[in-house]
Design a protein around this nucleic acid. Structure first.
Lengths: 190, 190, 190, 190
DNA sequence: AATGAATGAGGTTTCATTCAT
DNA sequence: TATGAATGAAACCTCATTCAT
């Protein structure tokens, strides 16, 4: 049995390895994953885990922040500096992007957003705030009707999230995207 | 001295006692509730619990079925035997009913539908099927537009559920209902 | 391998078995003893331990209370109902009794009274209060001089305890008892 | 960029830094202090600690030796070269000195002398030997009575230590010193 | 049918000590 | 000499489930 030898890494690198190991496992097995599994996957000792994360929930929180930041980076909101924005198209694109992003990460999504963890450590509604901002900008540009942005953004986000969930569960992507776009466009129509 | 055997109740009654004890506790404390808590609340021994439910998850499943059936009984769908049906009004009424029903049972809802349990034991999409039926009936009556009933029902259900969640969490009920009705009517408009 | 079969006992009996197993081990190995050791010695599962004691320190506290009560029962203080009391003799007898009692339980004494546990869960100074009561009664009976009972009792208890410790560690019992009795009688002499 | 090597200090100085950091922390927090805390306080790496002390207990032993030596230096025993010695006064003075010395270092005292460490690494009874020497010298000078020096010194030390402990815990210093001096003088009186 | 004592695998977390750099 | 990332055994504790009574 080849002893797996102690590899010394820069803290950020080791931390990232653990995070990525967790990501892989959560993706595959959802919230059944435990510290024990993560350290095996990452090839580190159990103590090493707690060197980087005070508790299991702190790892999940890190993962959640990472995921949110990653989406924001991949799909930034347009600004008006480059000319007028086609807000309906933006909503469509963001929704489609979210579906693809989230349905490709269904296991993680379940573990982070639809599990007991989400209940224990509620998330500031970043995605909803983001959506509400789009709605308000579209309203200012006369592209959207006079819906109440806050509550509406919340409902739309739920629909988008559900679409991602459905696609991940095997639903027809094209049908879901079409239904979602109908819902979005009609709800926000002037 | 013969033990004071608790034979007071017929099996069905005993089973119901346990179920109702669980309901009360889940409502109050969500998915943190344990077998231990339920048997204490129900006034039965731990073993008795497993006499009636092979596992904890089976109790939750029972609870889920009960909840679904209760809603269906309280808010039955109209049939056309009594004359034409105002389908948009039906959707509105069902949505409002759901919001009130679910937001009054937020703890249970969390434990049954937004927890690890929901993942372990996925639910046949009863509520969505029901909504799709309404959509189809409305379409046949020319009251709704040509949306794809299955996917659309799924998205609408997500929005309705989210509205209930938001109301339970303290959001303004009137604003949520208004936003939701806008979304429903516009999405389904002919 | 003969599976050790599950023995069902009355709670008090099982609790006593655990306590006594702990007593044996602490006597032999002092504060190195762990939950794991106790359950093995008692022949119960780990969970059973925590069924009876919320934490390890709670077991130690139980042991401490037991020990104190046992001494009080074995060597009760005399009352004046049966005629005048020879207080110097009482002090001598109590001290000798304590030495024998405690030196026969040195391991336990260490774990309960001279360990980090004693620091974490300080004990109400039962033994000192008891000694102070004897000093005061002796003073009222003109048998003892005008020392300050509280502080003096504290110092005398320390001396008695140390004598027990020394005897347990192999010191000559007769010499320790003699030195202690000299100290007690002279300190308290009228 | 070359690492800022901390070669500032000679080994002896570095070692003393660690010892003093430990002293400060033990004084403040007793036996709860860990290696981690000490190295942070001393500003050295964890490995450095084990370069100077093979184990945690070795540090504590060093600390103990230091403390004993410090007391001996601060309060040396008188010799007869300068004329006759007032042995009862010496005992009183040493006791009072010990009380002040030890009660000002209660945290350290707990960690070194009243903890599991004291059990793991028993101390050669330096303080007791010292006290016995005083008793014997006093006896030779006819200042003390015919008590058994060894056992008596042990008991007296226990009383003195307890007095320090009590003062540190908030007891009235004057009352404790008075009670202790009564005990010492009477026990040793000719 | 009912009980509740007992189980034990599984979970998180701690920390003195090691060792690659 | 110094560092600090890494280790891993060991600790405490939980709780769904079992089974002798």
């Amino acid at each position: 049995m080849p002893k797996p030898l102690r590899r010394r890494l820069a803290p950020e690198a080791r931390r990232r390895e653990i995070v990525e190991a967790a990501e892989r496992l959560l993706q595959a097995h959802g919230s059944r994953v435990r510290v024990e599994d993560v350290v095996r996957e990452a090839g580190v000792a159990k103590g090493t885990f707690f060197l980087y994360f005070p508790s299991w929930d702190d790892l999940l929180e890190t993962l959640r922040d990472r995921l949110v930041a990653e989406f924001d980076t991949l799909y930034p909101l347009p600004t008006e500096v480059d000319g007028p924005v086609d807000w309906p198209a933006v909503i469509d694109a963001q929704a489609a992007a979210f579906i693809d992003f989230a349905s490709a990460r269904a296991g993680i999504g379940q573990a982070l957003f639809h599990s007991d963890f989400a209940e224990r450590r509620p998330l500031a509604d970043h995605a909803i705030v983001r959506l509400a901002a789009i709605v308000r900008a579209g309203q200012e540009a006369q592209a959207f009707g006079p819906v109440d942005p806050g509550p509406t953004a919340r409902l739309l986000y739920a629909a988008i999230d559900e679409a991602a969930h459905a696609v991940a569960a095997g639903a027809d992507r094209a049908a879901m995207v079409a239904a979602l776009q109908t819902l979005l466009r009609r709800t926000l129509a002037p």
